[in-house]
Amino acid sequence: MNSGVVPYILISIGVFFDLVGAIGLLRLPDVYNRLQAATKCVTLGTCLILVGVLVHSGWNAMGIKALLAAVFVLWTSPTGSHALARGAHIAGVPLWERSVVDKYREDTGH
């Protein structure tokens, strides 16, 4: 399919937000804040790259796989970060010392 420049724009924006997520992973102070950056930016970034692949290759084997992968990323990435955050909290990973509140510890005692 001849779709011109559109897929390259989508993929570039996707790579840019993946990069923002990576910078967030380095700059933010604790595991919970880092998960925030990683989840949001990597979800949008990766989905945009996959949609770019779909636009580039059209409705064939590759495009459909890319679309399904985007749906699965959208579905599983927040679930995965929930599991990581919950696991980290139960395992006793502390919040950043300048965090203002931890209701989860108050209520569950983890």
């Binding site: 923002v20 967030g24 933010l28 102070p29 950056a37 949001k40 909290h89 950043w96 965090s99 509140v101």
Partner: peptide
């Protein structure tokens, strides 16, 4: 996220 991550002062006030 872009704003918070590139801002030099890291404007966050986190908590659960």
């Amino acid at each position: 996220v872009l704003y918070r991550v590139v801002h030099p002062n890291l404007p966050i006030r986190p908590g659960i």
